[in-house]
Design a protein around this nucleic acid. Structure first.
Length: 488
RNA sequence: CGGGGCGUAGCGCAGCCCGGUAGCGCACCUGCUUUGGGAGCAGGGGGUCCCAGGUUCGAAUCCUGGUGCCCCGACCA
């Protein structure tokens, strides 16, 4: 038993770290808060990236790439934006090293100080809007619908693999529009794209909503978000889409001539999702035996394990099954390793989250069957070889659906209405999850509730019904319920 | 930035209190026997004991200073 995973019931946080480590998703790096994303973790990101990228393209977006470095002065142009990011920026001050004259190693060459410091992008609004100024003259130049896949750096106090790392991978969409209506429609459309991606590919149910002023993106007029619920009852913001109004256009002086030959400021949106999604994926589906990957995001959906080890007969049978599966579009690996024993392999494939495992031994071959083991429920059944391809193809869909249904049932059970302060506190302390409660709409109240309970308003759900009520803390009138939760 | 913990083989750790020249498990290499849920036996390789200074005949161990990482909070995707 070389690879024990801490049970969730014992220490959820340690369980999470164990999964990341033992499912070979990522390693810590020599640099604080940065991680090495290992092949098995990166494969999940590649699938996420490809799926999202296709959805962006299908909604009319194109990819481009803007620089990693941003002149320091750009950051100060949009007041709220600086306020939000200044405290967590990595700054490049020099461009050269030299040998230490006092011996031992290299030092920063004091002669090589930069005239203007460069900021490693924490997000790219500033450099992109500085560029858009030159690209936009007329309403005919609009809209601009650009996305970029990039890495960004935010010097966070406290980091956790995938959930919050100093450097992370993400995509950021930056669009420019002639009207506010069009920009809002874009913001909402992209929120919809994220929600669909989360639910269809990650099998992770999400709540669509808007952020309160207090939780809004630095520089945005309105921030839309999708919020997911993790197994430990904490919420995770899984994607955001911002309506930026004319804030960045004004800060970077981006105007266009409209049809009436008048100068107007351009309307903007930005939207992003990051490698944090992998953290969400882990905490939505995985269990004490290891990672669980939904079939649509699994690089390898099916592994065939010859039992007890590969032999000419077993390999021939495995090749046929693999060919039949591949013909159905299933991603298959045949385990040709002849060193480890079956028990070891079973545990290993469960650890790294392969959705379906086929066990194939002489016993099965003689009976014309294959043993099918599904990762999500751990159930095993024997299936005739001649129907295996159809069976597995259907099973993958069923697993994808089951994971979603399971997560949704859990999530739905953990949206609890509260009408008194005592209820709110009790639910947050003991049950966890989202608490649906009335709020008077002020930042003061929101902050006060956070100080008392550590819970924040995750969002005002888009589908929140009009309902007269009283604020859970102050008793002031409220028109609708909002969702409170402790969050990652 | 506060609080706590830890730096000893690739990984996880013991040894430190009480100083005597480094050990255990896993992993790795070789061989044999095994193989339907994490194999067994035998042999073997691998170490600036985080760094610097001090005390001492002698430091992984004691003292001083530094440094790194992890975990828990406040801040954030």
């Amino acid at each position: 038993m070389a690879k024990e995973i801490t049970p969730r019931s014992e220490d959820y946080s340690q369980w999470y770290l164990d999964i990341v480590q033992k499912a070979r998703l990522a390693d810590n790096s020599p640099v604080r808060g940065c991680m090495v994303i290992k092949p098995h973790g990166y494969a999940i990101w590649e699938r996420m990236r490809d799926a999202l990228d296709a959805m962006f393209k299908a909604t009319g977006h194109v990819n481009a790439y803007f620089p990693l470095f941003i002149p320091k002065s750009f950051l100060s142009k949009e007041a709220a934006h600086v306020e939000g990011f200044a405290k967590e920026c990595a700054v490049v001050t020099h461009y050269r090293l030299k040998n230490d004259p006092n011996g031992g190693g290299v030092i920063v060459d004091p002669e090589a100080k930069l005239e203007e410091e460069l900021i490693v992008r924490p997000t790219s609004e500033t450099i992109i809007w500085n560029t858009y100024r030159d690209w936009i003259q007329s309403y005919r130049d609009l809209p601009i619908l650009i996305n970029q896949w990039a890495n960004v750096v935010r010097w966070e106090m406290r980091t956790r693999p995938f959930l919050r790392t100093t450097e992370f991978l993400w995509q950021e969409g930056h669009t420019a529009h002639a009207t506010a209506e069009e920009a809002v429609a874009e913001t909402e459309q992209m929120l919809e794209v994220y929600a669909r991606f989360a639910e269809e590919f990650m099998a992770m149910p999400v709540i669509k909503g808007i952020k309160t002023a207090n939780e809004r993106f630095a520089g945005a007029v309105e921030t839309y978000c999708i919020e997911a619920l993790m197994q430990d009852g904490k919420a995770l913001q899984a994607g955001t889409s911002h309506f930026l109004g004319q804030n960045f256009a004004k800060a970077f002086d981006v105007q266009f001539l409209n049809k009436e030959n008048q100068q107007e400021y351009v309307w903007a949106t930005s939207w992003g999702a990051s490698t944090r999604l992998i953290g969400g994926l882990i905490m939505t589906h995985s269990d004490d035996d290891g990672l669980v990957i939904p079939p649509k995001l699994a690089e390898i959906q099916v592994v065939i394990v010859p039992i007890p080890k590969p032999s000419p007969e077993l390999t021939e049978a495995a090749d046929k099954i693999a060919a039949a599966l591949r013909a159905k579009g299933v991603r298959v690996k045949i385990d040709n390793d002849d060193q480890n024993r079956p028990g070891f392999k079973f545990a290993e494939y469960e650890m790294i989250g392969i959705p379906v495992r086929l066990g194939l031994g002489m016993r099965d071959l003689a009976a014309g069957q294959v043993e099918v083991a599904r990762r999500d429920t751990k159930e095993k059944t024997s299936v005739p070889v001649d129907t295996i391809a159809d069976y597995v193809a259907n099973l993958l869909d069923e697993i994808q659906q089951n994971l979603f249904d399971r997560a949704k049932a859990y999530r739905d059970e953990h949206i609890t209405p509260a009408d008194t302060w005592e209820e709110l506190v009790d639910i947050l302390e003991n049950k966890g999850g989202f608490v649906s409660a009335h709020w008077d709409g002020t930042t003061e109240t929101e902050v006060a509730i956070k100080e008392k309970t550590k819970a924040t308003i995750r969002c005002i759900p888009l589908d929140a019904k009009e309902e007269d009520g009283k604020c859970i803390l102050t008793g002031s009138p409220s028109k609708r319920r909002v969702l409170f939760a402790k969050a990652y």
